[in-house]
């Protein structure tokens, strides 16, 4: 009950951030607000029990993409131009698409329905045989690192890059080390 309320509140705040991001013309502010969006998103995902997705959202959304967006800002400048055309048509398209997507969710099985096709296919085998077949205690880790190993290799590369970014940012200068002048 309280979980549902918390998730609803988080989603409402995310919607507010999205509106603010669209209306904001200073791209620095947009990057900062996007970071807040990622934190809210990751918290909502964790509340939905998707710990691994939450971890990825936090690492990619709040970590690496902030750095990448700032790198892009360095190249393009930080003030967004006013759009030349009016915003009525794009707004209409976004609203219609959003309504269609919302309508589409009614075709999905109910949230955490144990009889959903997704839960009857390979999931039981992962749950029962996973620890035996892979020797990894955590089921999510077993699926990601073993059953879907190649898939995860790409993701790991992203996380590794984020780690390198951290080192590059927090690196200290030794005394006597020359800074190369631009």
């Amino acid at each position: 009950m309280i979980e549902t309320g918390a998730i609803a509140a988080l989603l409402a705040m995310m919607a507010a951030v999205a509106v603010a991001v669209v209306r904001q013309r200073n791209l620095f502010a947009v990057v900062v607000l996007t970071t807040a969006y990622s934190f809210l998103m990751a918290t909502a995902l964790a509340a939905l029990d998707a710990a691994d997705v939450a971890m990825t959202e936090a690492a990619v959304g709040a970590g690496i993409s902030t750095v990448l967006l700032l790198g892009a800002l360095h190249l393009v400048g930080s003030l967004e131009m006013k759009p030349s055309a009016g915003s009525a048509v794009p707004l209409a398209i976004v609203v219609v698409t959003g309504l269609l997507v919302a309508y589409g969710t009614y075709g999905l099985p109910a949230f955490s329905d144990p009889d959903a096709p997704m839960h009857r296919h390979v999931a039981p085998r992962y749950l029962q045989e996973g620890p035996k077949e892979t020797g990894v205690p955590n089921v999510v880790t077993a699926v990601l690192a073993s059953y879907r190993g190649f898939d995860t290799l790409g993701e790991t590369t992203v996380v590794f890059t984020a780690g390198i970014g951290v080192i590059a940012l927090l690196r200290r200068r030794r005394p006597g080390e020359q800074e190369d002048k631009p």
Partner: peptide, 19 residues
């Protein structure tokens, strides 16, 4: 998970300021 947040929080702040 919360630990990851904490670490990324400071990285994000420092990245923005450094930039």
């Amino acid at each position: 998970l919360a630990l990851v947040y904490g670490l990324l929080n400071i990285v994000g702040t420092i990245a923005v300021l450094k930039f």
